[in-house]
Each structure stands twice: as structure tokens, then as C-alpha cells.
Amino acid sequence: MKTLLIGEFREGKLLDSTYELFGFAGQAADEPVMFMVGSETQLPSFGGRLYLADAAACGEYNPDLHKQLILNVVQKENPDRIVFVHSSYGWDLAPRVAVALKAAQVSEVVAIQEGGFEVGCCNGKMRRIVKPSTPQTVITIQAGAFQGVQPGGTPQVTRLAAPGGGTMEFVGYEPAEEKGVDLAKAEVIVSAGRGVGKKDNVAIIAALAKALGGELGASRPVVDAEWVAHDHQVGTTGQTVSPKLYVACGISGAIQHLAGMKKSDFILAINKDKDAPIGEVADVLVVADVMQFVPALTAKLAK
């Protein structure tokens, strides 16, 4: 099958996740062609055809315009699949392209299956197989689900002119907040999730962190609710960590959280739900109420 891969470029750089698209195409045994809004100086290591629009002229974020450029390439190449990374760029653009083509879209694919695509659902607890019924399909792949592959070579570049227009004006980037705590350096991280129940209980998790000589981490809802400061957040929109010991207290294990901590040497999870997806990465899953187990563990450590 012919596949149009949509590469990613941000703040002047080709993003590494672009290579995961080749990983997908390789597994699917597809013939890849790439499109990207990027730069001559940042070409992907790929010997096939690349349709390139200049980010300086088109803007790194201009969905109306990027959609139009993609539709033009689709018309020329007539691909069976149009594949994006499931990222803030991909999930924003893919549905626009799918509607314009009236093509089925399958989001956040984790594997290619007989007759369809496997996707996660119910916060990672379950899976679905989705089967598109349109001749053309728009797909977004889960970040990290397909191993990145650098095909090697230099692309044959077709330059695309910027057609102009777009109804949205990009104002600029805002850098990530300063990190007060560098979790990446910690040997032990004990993280509080929504399962701790309320702000007052965070102190109990922090006490375990202290007893283990580590830092306090947190899942996103705990940060959004202002129970813990943002610089403690672990995950795709927080910090990526790999301590010797990671303790997840009342954290379900959503993909965005796992992405930030699954490389830890040893993962201990405490959850009252033994089916929680955190169990997929945990070395040990303690099935208990965090508010009973954690203070008991801290007390025993103090002895």
C-alpha cells in the first residue's frame, strides 16, 4: 500500500518522532512517501520522495494551510493511508484532513492487526480493533508504539509553494516553566496520583519520599488541582524520569504518565484496582488503599 507520512518539525528542528512513522510503514510493509512543513537544512534521513513546504513561509503552526498542502499532495500521490504521529500536531491536523477527504480516521494506533488497527481505550485498560471502511484512511500512531527507524539516504525533494491564507494567526511559543526541582537527578521518586484523594493527603506521600531519601513526584490531575506544584509533574507534559525506584501512589497509569516514568529501574505501584494499567509496567503492584499502605510502609522504614 502507498502511505503518505506526515513528518513533524518544531522550533526549527525535525522531530525524532518522525522516524516512528517509518517504523509504522516498515511494519505495514507500505511504500512510504513523506510530506512535511520543515526546512532544507533539516531533511530526514530517507531516500524516498519528500514533499517539502518551507516552515519559514508557511508557519510551523497554520492548520488551514498545512491541511491544504497535504490535500494537494494526496491528490498527486493518491495514497491509501495518511499517517501522523498522535501528537499535538498530528491530532490537531488529522481530523481536518480526514473530513476533507471523507476518509475514516483511526486514532492512536498501537499495533497493526489482521483486518484493522489496534487502539487503546478506557484510559488504557482495554483495547479495540478498528476497521476502516473507506478506501483512504487517516491514521495517527501512538508515540512510542512503533520503534523509530532511520531508512537512510537523501530524499528526492519536491518543493511546495506556500499557497498563503489560513484563518489562524500564530503568535509564538511559550517555553516550558522553569524547573524548581530536577526530578531527572533523583534516585528515588514517590509520586502522588488522584487516588490520594485530597490535598491534605499529599503530605503522607511526601513523608514516604523523605523516608526513602527521594523527591516527590505527581501525576497531572494532582498538579492541575494545585495539590502539588507543576515542576513535580511526571509525564509527556511534565518531566521524564528514570530513577532507581519509582513509587506510584494512586496513579492509574495513563499512557501520558507512563511515557514519563516507564524507564525507571524498579517500579512499585500502590493501587486499590488490581486491573489498573500501571500494573503493565510495575515490577510490584500492591493492591491496597494508599492511605493505609503508605503510612504503614513509612513507619516501618523509620524503625
Partner: peptide, 29 residues
Amino acid sequence: SLAKTTSFHPPAKKGGGLLVEGDIADQVD
């Protein structure tokens, strides 16, 4: 519809970790 769900199932267990259940004091030990 343009796409159909053909299966709904739990993810394949990848070995997975050790499950520690039971009494709190035993779990701590």
C-alpha cells in the same frame, strides 16, 4: 459510519509484575 469496531478486549498481559495482596502489615513486609 466510516469505521467499525470489530473487537473489544483487555490488553495482552506482558508478563507483568508481582501482585501483592492481603493484609497491610504483610504487604509492608
